[in-house]
Design a protein around this nucleic acid. Structure first.
Lengths: 146, 146
DNA sequence: TATTGTTATACTCTATAACTATA
DNA sequence: TATAGTTATAGAGTATAACAATA
């Protein structure tokens, strides 16, 4: 798979990043999902949900960009695995709040560690390039997201 | 979604890149797949198959990292859409070679353009950062992949 | 009336295993 | 015997629509 010349250096950069992602064997996200015996969407939910916080099903549907009816099934399976729990919202009895269990928080930490592992090509870059890459991406998301 | 401090700057960089990908609304790959009315795997097949070349079903299964039985269905649907065609391999009558049609090559070019579009946070970086990002990633994949 | 979450349903995608045809 | 591709089948994931409870 080769990358065509691009006018915008950012497009060329993103093309190379995609090539790196597509070249991983096995593909990262399905592999980590299988490792923890959760679906890709279940993995994204665990990845996103912060320990010590709780989110409504509706908000999870927005985060996962999927239909609310689907969140029921995703949460059902993660709850059956003991990774999350449903709680009542004292302020609105329609709402169910989802929170990580202790086991879920442990799983989340390991999931994040695995997904943050840079691919071999990135990890092999010299120190100067790796720090420059980090600094550029930090500027891209802004100082508040660091 | 915040990013924890990482020891390795490359891991920190990859975490931010993942945050950028996860923050895209709608998620890029499903959105582009829907735009062309193909499955995510069909999209990856079109993305990968180079115009003027042909690949066996077996090789496509390796590229897509899925079971060979699944390739039959993926190829069936893309063929029905007129984007690819099955050809016979003169050297081995068991093998079927898959190649892009003209329409498929057009779709591929547009698919690649759409998938290579950098996310807003990357596109908004100053010129110096965008070229530095490209140069670092070019070094990561090596001069032969440019 | 509108919203949250659930259920019922149908459709797509996927892997496993068995099969055919070639090698 | 082994390999390429297909078919049969079942399981998992998804969206749409209809529903109950609550606001």
């Amino acid at each position: 798979m080769t990358v065509e010349a691009q006018v915008d250096p950012a497009a060329e950069a993103w093309a190379i990043a995609l090539e790196i992602v597509f070249s991983e064997r096995p593909p990262r996200v399905p592999a980590v999902a299988a490792q923890f015996d959760v679906s890709p969407m279940g993995l994204k939910l665990l990845y996103s949900l912060e320990p010590g916080t709780a989110a409504s099903m509706r908000r999870l549907a927005d985060t996962l960009f999927c239909d609310a009816s689907n969140v029921t099934g995703i949460v059902d399976r993660l709850e059956a695995r003991g990774l999350i729990e449903r709680r009542e919202d004292p302020g609105d009895r329609r709402v169910k709040l989802i929170a990580l269990t202790d086991a879920g928080a442990d799983a989340r930490a390991e999931i994040r560690r695995r997904l943050h592992e840079p691919p071999a090509q990135i990890a092999a870059l010299p120190e100067a390039d790796r720090t420059a890459l980090r600094d550029i991406l930090l500027r891209a998301v802004g100082p508040d997201r660091a």
